[in-house]
Simulated scan of single mutants.
Amino acid sequence: MRALLFLFLLTGSVAVAQVPAAGRPRPLADTARLRRHLQYLTTTAQPRNYQHPAVLDSVAGYLRRQLQAAGAREVAEQPYAVGEHTYRNVIGSFGPAVGPRLVVGAHYDVCGEQPGADDNGTGVAALLELARLLGQQPALPYRIDLVAYTLEEPPFFRTPNMGSYVHAAALRAAGVPVRGMVALEMLGYFDDRRGSQRYPFGPLKFIYGSRGNYVTVAQKFGNGRFGRQFARRYRRGARLPVKQFKAPAWLPGIDFSDHLNYWHFGYSAVLLTDTAFYRNPSYHQPTDGLARLDMRRLGLAVEALLAAVLPGPTDL
């Protein structure tokens, strides 16, 4: 993920959501599992970038096994060739086999020679923990596809070789109805100190605060019913601060993750993130390691995600 440049310039909403009502117990994320996933992802033999396709294949195998263990109805790979190598998305499906589906995705490759704990190990770990929690739910009325993408980072960003482009294009070609898409992009770095959250323009800290203690739901104007519904449900289900930002699609930064390809094919999509380098000084650096992450708040972000993707009264 690159910058969310200018994202904070637009009108946004801030909410600290409440604990769910009594009598409705919340499934809890397992922070030990999140840590184990991140430990695996950050200690591969070589960094999980496009120059090491064997490593990416081994990660894809790990993701496939974890999705199967979580109880996915079906786990499939989506291989595609780039040059002389084959790369693959991994897809775990929950709920009915047919009908409209919700897509939740995270990329598992990294930029350059770095461990990529926050970028995007946290997104992948969150995806796998969401899979485990979905596997504990009763029958879902609609399908939820969890997709782990490859080749999101340079030199493939903004090209048809992105795993998210390949997946979105295949959905469109098959005429699959999509309820919406959620991109998980860096969800584990938090800092409560004043001045830890940066912005493109300094005075914005007086509007949004200077502490990097929240997650953000970002989307473009005109993103449709799904975007509004997801942001509302996520805020309602969260036990950590949540800020929502909307901006025109043409603003640099608003589309700097996998969700941009779903917009390209006409699907409603949102980005869930900790704001990347506006907060995390180790963005795209060798210091982006596990020790810098907050497992407790990563777990809270996953729990709110579960609450947001499960069907509400209007979906039944």
Rank of each mutant, 00 (worst) to 15 (best):
A106H: 06
A106K: 03
H107T: 09
H107Q: 14
Y108K: 07
D109H: 04
V110I: 09
G112R: 13
G112M: 12
E113P: 01
E113H: 05
G116D: 08
G116K: 07
G116N: 09
T122D: 09
V124I: 15
A125E: 02
A126L: 11
L127W: 03
E129R: 03
A131T: 01
A131N: 02
G135Y: 01
G135T: 03
Q136R: 14
P138M: 13
P138Q: 13
A139T: 15
A139L: 15
L140Q: 13
P141A: 04
R143D: 05
R143L: 13
I144H: 05
D145K: 04
L146M: 10
L146W: 08
V147D: 09
A148M: 04
A148K: 02
L151S: 00
E153S: 08
F156I: 02
T159S: 13
P160D: 14
S164V: 15
H167C: 12
A168W: 05
A169M: 06
A170C: 10
R179H: 03
G180L: 03
G180W: 00
M181T: 08
A183R: 00
L184G: 06
L184K: 10
E185D: 15
E185V: 10
M186L: 14
M186H: 08
M186D: 12
Y189V: 05
D192F: 13
R194P: 14
G195I: 09
R198H: 15
F201T: 13
P203M: 04
K205N: 11
F206M: 02
I207D: 01
G209T: 12
R211D: 13
R211H: 12
G212Y: 06
N213Y: 12
T216G: 02
A218W: 10
F221P: 00
G222D: 12
G227L: 03
Q229F: 00
A231S: 15
R233N: 06
R235N: 01
A238G: 07
R239P: 01
L240E: 06
L240T: 02
P241Y: 02
P241S: 09
V242Y: 01
K243G: 00
K243E: 04
K246F: 00
K246S: 12
K246H: 05
K246G: 13
A247R: 07
A247Q: 07
